[in-house]
């Protein structure tokens, strides 16, 4: 994995996912490990994303490395019209690793092919956000003890949600049975269903969340955003159908955990937070360990 950029979740193999998970586990036990001394990470955030940026900064700090960069384009040379090409060419010579977030899709692939140092994609528009997926995998692994043969319910916006598509691609390496629960307008795109079909994996599609979650090992909730609906009345009618309430968790499996990439709006009622099956806040904390693992694997330190 040394020097191997992480642009899309499919850039890494199943074994590489497992390697990241096992390194992340080490960092969870002992988070402060100053193995990155003298190394510099350039955090290039062409659009603001405070949580992701802080998570990377925290990871580098706990590894004893230094962070340079910018957190939006207002204060950087990008506002002066510098191309991404030029920015990346120059920054490459200032650092050992680039972490980049950019509003345009494909920007991370483009940048990774220009740099002389490895690059981690921290989100390129609606395309990919692979470190989120790896932290989802880590969270699932930790709570279930395995990634193999799980039953995973994915709820909400399955059409536009990039985290959902990447999670599907990654989990499909582990013989997952999927249940997709969404309104008609936001169904899982056919290309992903064909992909599962070709792998011989079972999937089920449904419109109702209210019942039938007894089989789930994982419920992965996502936001259903108003702007995704062509008809606002349709949104008002459907939004409450995809809200998870504590009473819906009665009769579910003991090992069930509820995940959400956060921030949530109203799709998980607060009464779920107190249920031990709620895992989304721990999931967010895992982000730092997983990013420590990715950074140290790419720099060849682990």
């Amino acid at each position: 994995m040394k020097n191997k950029s992480l642009v899309s979740i499919t850039d890494y193999s199943k074994n590489e996912y497992l390697k990241i998970i096992s390194i992340a586990d080490e960092f969870e036990k002992q988070s402060v490990q100053p193995i990155m001394q003298g190394k510099v990470v350039a955090n290039l955030f062409f659009e603001p994303s405070t949580r992701t940026r802080l998570s990377f900064e925290s990871a580098v700090n706990r590894l004893g490395g230094r962070v340079i960069g910018f957190s939006d384009t207002l204060s950087s040379s990008v506002t002066k019209g510098e191309t991404l090409y030029d920015t990346i060419k120059i920054v490459s010579s200032y650092c050992d690793l680039i972490v980049m977030r950019h509003p345009l899709e494909g920007s991370a692939r483009f940048a990774s092919e220009l740099t002389t140092v490895p690059l981690i994609n921290a989100g390129d528009g609606a395309n990919q956000h692979p470190t989120q997926t790896l932290l989802d995998l880590y969270s699932i692994y930790k709570t279930q003890g395995t990634l193999e043969n799980l039953t995973v319910f994915i709820v909400g916006d399955l059409k536009y949600g990039r985290t959902v598509h990447s999670l599907l691609m990654a989990l499909s390496q582990f013989k997952t049975t999927f249940h997709f629960i969404s309104p008609d307008e936001l169904k899982m795109p056919d290309e992903y269903k064909f992909y599962l079909h070709r792998l011989g994996l079972d999937y089920y599609e449904r419109k109702e969340l209210a019942s039938g979650v007894e089989k789930a090992d994982i419920i992965y909730m996502t936001r259903v955003q108003k702007e995704r609906f062509s008809d606002p009345i349709e949104y008002e009618k459907t939004k409450n159908a995809y809200v998870l309430r504590n009473k819906m968790l009665a009769g579910t499996k003991d090992n069930l955990k509820v995940l959400h990439p956060l921030p949530r709006v109203s799709e998980i009622e607060q009464d779920v937070d107190l249920n031990p099956k709620a895992y989304y806040f721990e999931q967010a904390r895992n982000g730092v360990y997983v990013r420590q693992a990715i950074i140290s694997a790419i720099l060849g330190l682990k």
Binding site: L84, G106, S107, D124, G125
Partner: peptide, 24 residues
């Protein structure tokens, strides 16, 4: 940005191109 496009051809009969960059 000024970039030469690049696609993988994923279907030839009814041509479908997957963008190397944005994956669409």
């Amino acid at each position: 940005e000024k970039i030469v496009t690049k696609f993988q051809v994923i279907s030839k009969r009814e041509v479908q191109l997957r963008c190397h960059y944005c994956e669409k």
